[in-house]
Design a protein around this nucleic acid. Structure first.
Lengths: 115, 115
DNA sequence: CCTCTATATTGATGGATATCTATGTATGGA
DNA sequence: TCCATACATAGATATCCATCAATATAGAGG
């Protein structure tokens, strides 16, 4: 072994274009669990909604239609997507639905890209 | 003004369900500029590719087909999406294409969710 | 109960996209 | 110059999704 083994390994590397000692990729399950959260955030309207909710601390749905200039059902749809992704929390107060940022889930995204 | 103005403002607030003093949302342009980057990351295969590239430091395309179990054109497509989003850098070396993480763009995502 | 009002759901439609096969391009070696 | 190899592009298809109008649900007040 020693020198010789290393040499053979290097020759093998050249024939396959590079060292095939890649680590395992992120498990498919993990990736598929992250995707709904990332898709939720990969929409211009939902980014605007998140920024509105974050800056206000708490907002009721009725105040969100006008800033994004979309119909009530469409905004309701986007709020549902964000809620199901866990990015915002929903609280019912009488007739109104109030939304706020889920900072824990937001932190998950930070650690995904920073670590 | 004074007391009276405040009182009228509060009544107005109640009739519209809550204080309408929301800040401006993230500008539409800004949101639309971010979306391609977030969409690039909102795919299970591309998350796996990113993790492979990050752990290896540098990888050539030929070593990426097998770990994600997809055809060469499909992986080529995903690598193009990631490259155009600026998330990875591409370097041609002879016949081979080598990819590495663009940490600056990755940092943009971190700051988007953390600040 | 009945009627507003706030929000959710449904159904339809146009547009985006993930994947494949087949083909093109370009590089390096004999 | 010719062939083999690495990667990209084109075309086709199936699926997903953003949006709206219309309708349903549900809570508050009279």
């Amino acid at each position: 072994m020693g020198e010789r083994a290393v040499e053979m390994l290097e020759l093998d590397d050249i024939s396959t274009c590079c060292a095939s000692g890649l680590g395992e990729p992120m498990p498919r399950r993990t990736a598929e669990r992250l995707v709904p959260v990332l898709k939720a955030v990969a929409d211009p309207v939902r980014l605007q909604l998140l920024s509105l909710i974050k800056s206000a601390g708490e907002v009721c749905a009725c105040d969100l239609y006008e800033p994004v200039a979309l119909s009530q059902p469409t905004v309701s749809h986007h709020l549902k997507v964000l809620t199901e992704a866990g990015l915002i929390d929903r609280e019912q107060r009488g007739t109104w639905a109030w939304f706020s940022i889920n900072h824990e889930r937001m932190g998950d995204l930070v650690s995904l890209f920073s670590e």
